[in-house]
Simulated scan of single mutants.
Amino acid sequence: MDQKRNEYLKKKQDPSLKLFVVLSKAYRSVADQVAKDIRSHGLNTTDFGVLELLYHQGEQPLQKIGDKILLASGSITYVVDKLEKKELVKRTPCPNDRRITFASITEEGQQLLNDIFPEHWKQIEAITAGLNEEEKVAAIPLLKKLGMYADDFSGKS
């Protein structure tokens, strides 16, 4: 028993495990607050993610939206259907390939984001105010490096 306890205590002090726990808790806390802000504008995070992608990057093939906002391909149709019914997004068939359909943000969708985004940005600034600007700038490349390594990890093992 003492050996198992010692192994547990050693693992508990491991910075990799500690980083994972702290990173997970921090992400959940920040994401929950951001989601709460988005819901206050009558959207869910998935709807907002699709609108924001189309707003900032323009027309996108439906097949590519899921990859860009981490959404399963089967869910894209459902989300775009909802946004289309609200007249925030429109579909356009590709003239050269019938298998491809594009989604783009409508004027109504652009106006909604124009109205929402300045306040949403302020909320994100308030939510992340636990770090000063210098700390935020320092954290970005470290988290990016960790994420890129984790993305490539399956090829390394």
Rank of each mutant, 00 (worst) to 15 (best):
L9K: 09
S40P: 06
L53R: 02
K85I: 04
S157V: 08
V50H: 00
I105F: 02
D97H: 07
K85D: 15
K4E: 06
D152A: 13
D37G: 10
H41C: 03
S104Q: 13
S73Q: 06
A129Y: 03
N96S: 13
N44A: 09
E52T: 14
E84H: 07
K10F: 11
T77Y: 10
L83F: 02
Q33W: 00
Q33F: 02
T128I: 07
Q60F: 07
K144H: 10
H56A: 09
F153M: 12
A31E: 08
V80P: 02
T106P: 08
S16L: 12
E133Q: 09
I65K: 06
H120L: 13
M1W: 09
A103M: 07
V89K: 01
Q123W: 02
I69A: 03
L62S: 00
V79D: 05
T106K: 05
G130F: 09
D152Y: 02
E84F: 06
Y8S: 07
L142R: 13
K85N: 13
Y149F: 08
K85Y: 07
L146I: 13
K122Q: 15
E125A: 11
L88M: 08
L142Q: 11
S29T: 08
R99H: 14
I65L: 07
A103V: 08
V137N: 01
N132R: 10
D32V: 05
N114M: 10
T101I: 14
A126L: 05
V34A: 03
A35Q: 03
L54Y: 07
K4I: 11
V79L: 10
T46M: 00
I69T: 02
E107A: 13
R99V: 04
V80H: 06
K85R: 15
Y78T: 15
P61E: 08
G74M: 09
V22W: 10
K82Y: 01
D115R: 15
L113R: 05
L142F: 09
E135G: 04
E119R: 12
S73H: 11
K90S: 05
P15E: 04
F117D: 01
V34T: 03
Q13S: 12
N114F: 03
E87N: 10
A150T: 05
N6L: 14
G155D: 05
A31F: 12
L131V: 00
R99L: 14
G147I: 01
S73R: 15
N132L: 00
T92F: 01
K12S: 04
Y27H: 12
K136T: 10
P118D: 02
R28I: 06
G74E: 08
I65T: 04
L143E: 03
V137G: 01
V22G: 01
D32Y: 07
H56D: 14
M1L: 11
G66W: 06
D115A: 12
R99G: 14
G130W: 05
T101Y: 04
I116P: 00
L23A: 15
I116D: 00
W121R: 13
A31D: 14
D47G: 11
L88Y: 14
L19P: 00
M1G: 11
E134K: 13
N44Y: 11
L88I: 03
D115E: 13
L113A: 06
R39A: 15
T92P: 00
Y27I: 05
Q13F: 09
V50I: 15
S104N: 12
A26D: 08
K122I: 04
Q60S: 14
I140F: 05
Q60T: 11
